[in-house]
């Protein structure tokens, strides 16, 4: 009997899980469903499992189960308190060698990207980065079902679907906010397996001297519900002040396109797009943005997109639910005024 394990790496920092881990659990469960219909033998099963490294984090293991894990491999040790590549890579690799998962998903965060490539190479297997879609192949090849992982390439101009042949686990990394967070189920049942940490004294070759947390209060775009974004059409950095005003009045955050960040008009943390953040707000206002594909990739999952641009042929209008052809320096102040007015008169 073979157990096809679908693994998700739970990323945590200071005892708090990164939401991408839960998003991936949803993907894992979806893949598990597809796998169940593909496996040949009736004796084979599919199991959705998590790998969790940290120190004093049993609550997280329970959370993992509530978000859909059937089993959690928990490795606890002080060495995992602060993320470092070597101990994490060694332990995740050891677990993967022990349990031979079929699929292994990791969030494509800063940490995830630091870890995934190292793990994949240690396991001599294939890794597809920044996937936007993962499905199980329709036709059976070799003796295990194959994943088809789709990712944007060439700055988002092409969608490439990648297959990892012959090697296991088939690894994929996924950016935050590409998939939705699944519902939490407090009476979910699952098991937690404690594994022993592998400690290598040579890991002391690298030492963290100091770690400074950055307050990202204003800038956590990926989970913002309302984003007002600016592009090159703003003309210069001062345009962002106006957009911030609109964002404030709407209760949202400010985003930007890559050219604005490259020009130094605004910090990289605000960048939406292929090499910036993928966002899924309820409302996305794109002002002075032409809509190059690299930006569209980051913004197109928004529920409602309003675009403002002088050029009626701007590609951004292709993904906008509503477009205003006009001067953003006239439209935005008008919008600020009207929203303020409506809020004051409590019509909204």
């Amino acid at each position: 009997m073979t157990i096809h394990r679908v693994w998700v790496f739970i990323e945590q920092q200071g005892g708090r899980a990164h939401p991408v881990s839960w998003e991936l659990l949803a993907v894992a469960n979806d893949l598990a469903k597809q796998l169940k219909t593909k496996i040949g033998s009736a004796n084979d099963t599919v199991s959705v499992e998590c790998v969790l490294l940290g120190n004093n984090i049993p609550a997280l293991a329970r959370d993992a189960i509530s978000f859909g894990a059937e089993r959690v491999y928990l490795v606890e040790h002080p060495v995992f308190e602060q993320y470092m590549n070597a101990p994490y890579c060694k332990n995740v690799t050891a677990l993967a060698k022990k349990y031979t998962p079929t699929v292994f998903l990791i969030g494509a965060t800063n940490l995830g990207r630091d870890l995934a490539g190292a793990v994949a190479t240690s396991l001599e297997t294939g890794l597809t980065a920044d996937c936007t879609d993962i499905v199980v192949d329709e036709v059976d090849r070799v003796d295990h079902p194959l994943l088809l992982a789709t990712r944007p390439a060439f700055g988002g101009n092409i969608l490439a679907t990648i297959v990892c042949r012959e090697r296991l686990p088939q690894m994929a990394s996924v950016r935050p906010r590409v998939f939705p967070v699944p519902p939490k189920s407090d009476n979910a049942v699952g098991e937690v397996i404690s594994e022993k940490a592998v400690i290598d004294f040579r890991d002391r070759r690298v030492e963290i001297l100091e770690r400074i947390q950055i307050d990202r209060q204003g800038i956590n775009l990926e989970y913002a519900d309302i984003i007002v974004s600016g592009g090159r059409g703003l003309g210069d950095a001062s345009g962002f002040k106006m957009l911030q005003e609109l964002a404030d009045v709407l209760g949202g955050k400010v985003g930007a396109t890559r050219p604005c960040v490259d020009a130094g008009w605004i910090a990289y943390e605000h960048q939406v797009g292929q090499t910036g953040k993928t966002v899924r707000p309820k409302l996305y206002i794109a002002a002075g943005i032409s809509g190059a594909l690299q930006h569209k990739v980051g913004a197109q999952n928004a529920d409602f997109i309003i675009a403002i641009n002088k050029d009626p042929h701007a590609p951004i209008f292709d993904i906008a639910d509503m477009g205003i052809v006009g001067d953003l320096y006239e439209v935005i102040p008008e919008m600020i005024a009207q929203v303020r007015q409506q809020k004051e008169s409590e019509l909204l």
């Binding site: 390439a153 101009n157 969608l159 990739v297 997109i305 209008f317 906008a320 509503m322 006009g326 006239e330």
Partner: peptide, 15 residues
């Protein structure tokens, strides 16, 4: 490989 699907354009209002 494929090109990303072109989405349906929404309504356009001219100032």
């Amino acid at each position: 490989t494929a090109t990303p699907p072109q989405s349906e354009a929404g309504e356009l209002i001219y100032c």
